[in-house]
């Protein structure tokens, strides 16, 4: 199940987003304060984290930077009513957000931004899975090679077979 975290100090924004995301079938967690949102990062693995920019106690970029450390794979988005240059640059450079969305928003824009974020998350996950798979297979091959090497040193020639032109294995009792 894809989990999405929404953080905004305005409860009505959270309700509106919940309504918007309900038909998509994602598991949506909403937090109206940064402290609880931070706490939940320990219990849930999120695909996408969407945060407001201006909030009491900590701004959205600071929160997303924390979130990046805790869950580097979660794709980060900002949804802000405060669209000045400085905050956008901070969001992009410091929190490395995937998208910077502004309030008021168009529903379809938010949905497509989240979908693209989920795609990115799944690609990352798939990439990691394949890399692990690859490592595992390499390890297996290495283990086999080592075993063969061991057999060869113990019984020289045991790993090699002689064949004739038809491909039949030739056995000889030289030793």
């Amino acid at each position: 199940m894809i989990k999405i975290q929404l953080v905004d100090d305005e409860r009505n924004i959270l309700s509106a987003l919940r309504r918007l995301l309900k038909p998509e079938g994602w598991e949506v967690h909403t937090y109206d304060n940064v402290e609880e949102a931070l706490g939940s990062l320990k219990d849930h693995e999120y695909a996408v984290i969407i945060s407001d920019f201006r909030m009491p106690t900590a701004d959205g970029v600071t929160y997303l930077q924390f979130a990046k450390q805790r869950q580097p794979d979660a794709v980060r988005l900002v949804l802000s009513a405060y669209g000045d240059r400085e905050s956008m640059i901070k969001a992009i450079n410091q929190a490395e957000v995937h998208r910077y969305l502004s309030k008021p928003w168009e529903d379809h824009e938010v949905i497509s931004a989240i979908r693209s974020a989920i795609d990115l998350y799944q690609l990352k996950k798939e990439n990691q899975r394949l890399r692990r798979e690859n490592e595992r297979q390499k390890d297996m091959i290495r283990a086999r090679e080592e075993e063969l090497l061991r057999l060869e040193t113990e019984n020289p020639g045991i790993t090699r077979v002689q064949r004739d032109t038809d491909g039949s294995v030739l056995l000889s009792d030289d030793d």
């Binding site: 305005e10 009505n12 924004i13 309700s15 309504r19 009513a81 405060y82 309030k103 008021p104 529903d107």
Partner: peptide, 23 residues
Amino acid sequence: AGVAHEINNPVGYVYSNLQTLDN
């Protein structure tokens, strides 16, 4: 700038709610 922020928040959710209302 601050007032724009104050207004964009409620307008944001009202606008989104209207789209949901349509559905």
